[in-house]
């Protein structure tokens, strides 16, 4: 076997199918912030992200046959909370929508239930970080009887090239999170006040 073949085989054996860790958190400098004089809704709002979802590791495609892995709900949660807090003065995390103790203690009147899904890929055969990343946020707001009172779906797409992500491997994901949360913020501006 030629040396070139041996080297190639070694590289494939070493790196084939690796899952590389990235973080899918937004850049807070890119997220809208409610102006100080804005009137946020006083209705206490809960949002549901379970502990199991926070710990769940999600995999999606990278380059060179590798994949990337991340704790999707944990990574997005702080940006999601930030955007909700732009419109609601009192926002509380809930482990499940029927968490009676939290509902009673915080006087929660409506509950947001988000579903985050992702896709990613890379146009590169030699580098693993995604060059394109998509984050979809489906969100339902329900009342205390479980009735849907508002729902939206927004999608953010982030792209990054090698020259950019060589110092920040999750850059495409970060850009997707920025865009999806910016769209969610715009959607929440239409949330009924009553």
């Amino acid at each position: 076997m030629r040396i070139s073949s041996l080297l190639l085989l070694l590289v494939l054996l070493l790196f084939g199918g690796c899952a590389h860790t990235i973080v899918v958190a937004p850049d807070f400098g890119h997220l809208p912030t409610a102006p100080k004089d804005s009137t946020r809704m006083e209705r206490p709002a809960g949002y549901v992200i379970s502990e199991a979802d926070r710990k769940r590791v999600v995999n999606s495609g990278g380059g060179g046959g590798d994949s990337v892995s991340y704790t999707l709900y944990k990574d997005i949660e702080s940006g999601f909370y930030h955007v909700l807090s732009n419109y609601f003065a009192h926002v509380y995390a809930m482990n499940r929508p029927d968490d009676a103790a939290v509902i009673k203690e915080k006087n929660i009147e409506l509950i947001f239930v988000p579903i985050f899904t992702t896709q990613s890929s890379s146009s590169s055969l030699l580098t693993w970080p995604p060059t394109e990343f998509t984050l979809k946020i489906e969100i339902n707001a329900v009342d205390l009887h479980g009735k849907t009172i508002w729902q939206r779906e927004v999608t953010g797409v982030g792209k990054a090239e090698f020259s950019e992500f060589k110092s920040e491997f999750g850059l495409a994901a970060k850009r997707a999170a920025d865009q999806a949360l910016q769209k969610l913020d715009a959607a929440l501006a239409q949330f009924p006040k009553n």
Partner: peptide, 22 residues
């Protein structure tokens, strides 16, 4: 092939830490 091997195995380049989290 050498380039792929070297860049894959050795990563002695400079990088930035991700920005602060909330």
């Amino acid at each position: 092939v050498v380039a792929v091997f070297v860049t894959s195995v050795l990563s002695a380049c400079s990088m930035l830490a991700p920005k602060a989290a909330v």
